[in-house]
């Protein structure tokens, strides 16, 4: 029989490297590969769409400011979480998130179902000075979000990068028309990269998220993003037992 000798590995760097890689990749393969193979990983639900240019900028600010270090975006399927935050998160809901913001630390509450819970005014005030509305809060102040103009010159490039990893933003007429079919004309216009800057400004005008219509602030983008979190899927249209079968 083949007699394995430690020495063979320990004295041969190349072999050691290969064997180490093999050992490490087992963990990854076992956990990740099946998700691509198993048919029922992603729930088939309506309504999930990519972020608009403004929301996407807000999402990038969310990441820049490290909000994810204190906030998760993943309501787990437990009773206490469902009672506090709302319906548990679906895999389908983060299919356009690159990278997803599930997070692993909850110093503050989960934000996966935040959209519509508060008014824009509340978010602005809370982000500038959290303790002015929640006296016992330990969340930091983010006053510069209101002062900083949003730099959206590169929004087209950001969307192109996301398109490269599979988010259906469009760069030509054909892709645009596919989006009209999939997401409706209003959203398809938002997802069209050549018009991204105009769409972004139009959404700020219409939404006036930060209460100051005179300029596009980082606050506008972040609040637009926060207000869309968890609102895309209409759970009143889904039978709970259907979601059970996707696990």
């Amino acid at each position: 029989m083949f007699k394995f000798k430690h020495e063979a590995l320990e004295t041969n760097t190349g072999l050691l490297l290969v064997a180490t890689m093999m050992a490490i990749s087992v963990g990854g393969l076992v956990e990740i590969a099946p998700l691509f193979l198993i048919e029922d990983t992603m729930e088939k639900v309506e309504g999930v769409r990519p972020y608009t240019p403004l929301e996407q900028m807000g999402r990038d600010i969310y990441i820049r400011e490290g909000c994810y270090t204190c906030h998760s975006q993943m309501v787990r399927p437990f009773r206490d979480e469902q009672l506090r935050y709302g319906h548990y998160s679906l895999a389908a809901e983060s299919k356009y998130d690159h990278p997803f913001q599930w997070g692993s630390k909850r110093t503050g509450p989960d934000l996966a179902r935040l959209g519509g819970k508060y008014s824009n005014e509340w978010h602005v005030q809370h982000l500038i000075a959290p303790r002015s509305v929640v006296p016992e809060s330990v969340m930091p102040n983010y006053p510069w979000l209101m002062e900083n103009r949003l730099n959206y010159a590169d929004i087209g490039q950001r969307m192109r990068a996301l398109r490269a990893v599979g988010v259906p933003y469009s760069i030509n007429q054909e892709e645009y028309e596919r989006n009209v079919k999939d997401f409706g004309p209003e959203m398809a216009a938002q997802f069209h990269i050549p018009n991204a800057r105009e769409s972004l400004v139009a959404q700020v005008r219409a939404g006036n998220y930060d209460g100051d219509p005179s300029y596009v602030s980082e606050m506008d983008a972040l609040v637009a993003y926060l207000q869309v979190l968890g609102t895309m899927v209409d759970f009143s249209q889904i039978k709970p037992e259907e979601l059970v079968k996707f696990r």
Partner: peptide, 9 residues
């Protein structure tokens, strides 16, 4: 699975 368990709970 956890979703079925949640539903029953």
């Amino acid at each position: 699975n956890t979703r079925a368990k949640l539903l029953r709970e």
